[in-house]
Amino acid sequence: MAQVKEKKKTIFEQPWHELPRGGIMPDAGNAAEYNTGDWRTDRPIWDSEKCISCLICWMFCPDSSILVQDGKMVGIDYEHCKGCGICAAECPPKVRALEMKPEADFR
């Protein structure tokens, strides 16, 4: 008979005594697991019709939140985008494919 597996707690659900001592992080490269997207007060909205995939936003994004596939921009990683607005500011004036909108509009 198959055993019923207890659902593993995520690190966000773990009580204090189950966390590594002294705030030590035993795993490397786990920043992606942390949702920094909920810090955002303004959200970048991408218009795929206007975008020319110059990738200037990709170069400037401090959080690697511009998603690119095969050399083309395909969207924004809202899990990690902190809403700094650099992408919208750097998008060429003639293109304007990125626009910042208040996060409250989406809630």
């Binding site: 009580p15 204090w16 966390l19 002294g22 705030g23 030590i24 992080m25 035993p26």
Partner: peptide, 18 residues
């Protein structure tokens, strides 16, 4: 391992309790 990482409202309390 990483030591001295950043904690926010979701972890600092647990670590200080620890």
């Amino acid at each position: 391992v990483t030591m001295g990482g950043l904690d926010f409202t979701d972890f600092y309390f647990e670590h200080r309790r620890g």
